[in-house]
Amino acid sequence: MSGEFLAIIAVLFMDKFIYRLAFYKKELLKYVSSNDLLSFLIRALRRSYLPICYSQGFNPKPLISFGLPCPVGVESEQDWIDITLGKEMEKNEIMESLNSQLPKSLQFFRCERKYTNSSLISDTYGINYELKVFALIKEKLLEEVAEFKNKENVMILVRRGSKIKEINIKSFIEDMELKEIETGYFIVSLKTKKIGDSIIRGEEFLEIFSSKPLLLDQKREVVLNCINY
């Protein structure tokens, strides 16, 4: 019997129903840090009176988990949470209950029942980014983008916690497109993938340029391997 099957049996017998939900976070709410967003969503869940399950022990906490944290200042087109309910419910009912407690700039738009305990981080395939940038010399920007596409390895320095690391950014990027929206203004669309447990942040892509374009806006979308397990 496979481990996955055992996990499914365990979840079924525990009277716990895990739902995986997608939400967007836009406009000014992009300035809310991921820690603050967690308590913001927990309180919205509590107000919604959904039958959320709590952990056992001295200090019971609602069973809710996040994926890769969204940095302050970045809008999210799609982020995910897992919640555990004590009863089976209609997916739409869950979303409606939650959305009624949330502002228009943060709403859930997808909900799936989940049958295993796999974590959101392990189920994450990668993150798509959309960077709006301004560059003074268009030719130079295009030249460096072309160069990037042709190279096999592009090493950049990134900060990870208190350490500075050298990574090959090329290995994280599956696809990259550049589009000029008006003179000097460009949209960089990136499809990135997770390697092990690490990802790259959208703005780190700008490290490839000798003269760094000015980052004006950043959006992200977290892509999962598949949604229900």
Partner: peptide, 10 residues
């Protein structure tokens, strides 16, 4: 801490 200035609370 930009969230100090955005309003938008519940």
């Amino acid at each position: 801490k930009p969230s100090r200035y955005i309003g938008n609370e519940h």
